[in-house]
């Protein structure tokens, strides 16, 4: 079987398209690369969606912790404490058991122009349940980074904005938020990389892989167990993850350039995979 045929058969296997049965005997290198790559789409999906929503929620959390009254501040602090203080591994297990307990029922949300139907059993599926956990987790870690940055926004900048007569909303949009982002950005890029790496945990915790549709590590593990040879599939997924991390660094570098356009000597986002110590 040629490699392009393998790509056709297994390229989207992680989403249930193509060949149903996974290769069992005579596993070729090409099959390993294609199937693990197919699973990596899940990792990218989880990382991208969790980061986008996590970014928004983390910003809100950071403002609640710094600027809001105790009614918002205390829950925000507690949220960050719980999610940063416990292992993501246990959070996955706990959330899965929690979602399993929720009674099965369907919802219909009438949006006026269309009707969305949702079902609580989706929560026990990785695509939604694990995503929620990842989203909450990255929100907590990012909120911690943003809180630090928010506290470091120079007072003079805010006072200058006041002196210009900016109202709260304009001040936030033009002064506080961009400065906070600029200060937090290099730590935040580490958080993004770390979150991308965390996506590999999903199918090894509570969430089962439905019809063998798993992420990259799920297939890497499958091959290692079936060939009794860990020296091929794990290096393949390692390369995928390093490439993904490089892409993230590249993207965050571009944004950093834009954020620091007005700064004379902008801090360089160097590719130091080492600084992933933010967690």
């Amino acid at each position: 079987m040629s490699c392009s045929q393998t790509l056709w058969d297994y390229g989207l296997r992680a989403f249930g398209y193509g060949e149903r049965l996974l290769p069992k005997t005579d596993i070729t290198f090409c099959e390993q690369v294609v199937l693990i790559g197919s699973g990596m789409i899940w990792n990218v999906y989880f990382a991208v969606v969790a980061i986008i929503f996590g970014f928004l929620f983390a910003t809100a959390l950071a403002f609640a912790r710094v600027n809001a009254g105790p009614l918002l501040r205390i829950p925000a602090n507690a949220f960050v404490f719980v999610f940063r203080g416990s292992p993501l591994f246990i959070q996955f297990f706990f959330a899965y058991e929690l979602f399993v307990q929720i009674p099965r029922m369907g919802f219909e949300v009438d949006l006026g122009f269309m009707v969305l139907s949702a079902h609580t059993s989706w929560l026990t599926k990785a695509w939604l349940g694990a995503l929620i956990v990842l989203f909450l987790n990255t929100s907590a870690y990012s909120a911690e980074i943003f809180t630090g940055a928010l506290r470091a926004v120079p007072k003079g900048d805010v006072e200058a904005a006041d002196a210009f007569g900016m109202n709260g909303r304009t001040k936030f949009r033009r002064i506080v938020f961009p400065t906070m982002l600029r200060l937090a950005w290099s730590s935040y890029s580490n958080e993004a990389i770390f979150l991308f790496h965390s996506t590999a945990l999903i199918f090894f915790t509570g969430f089962p892989a439905w019809r063998q549709q798993g992420d990259g590590l799920y297939y890497a593990n499958y091959f290692a167990e079936n060939t009794f040879n860990p020296f091929v599939s794990y290096p393949i997924i390692a390369v995928y993850f390093i490439l993904g991390s490089l892409l993230i660094v590249g993207f965050f570098g571009l944004v950093s350039k834009r954020l620091n356009k007005h700064v004379a000597d902008p801090p360089k986002l160097k590719f130091r995979m080492g600084s992933i110590l933010a967690r």
């Binding site: 790496h197 965390s198 590999a200 945990l201 090894f204 590590l217 890497a220 593990n221 290692a224 860990p230 794990y234 997924i237 390692a238 993850f241 390093i242 991390s245 995979m273």
Partner: peptide
């Protein structure tokens, strides 16, 4: 550069 869980497996 690689998730720790990969190493644990």
């Amino acid at each position: 550069g690689v998730p720790d869980i990969v190493f644990f497996l």
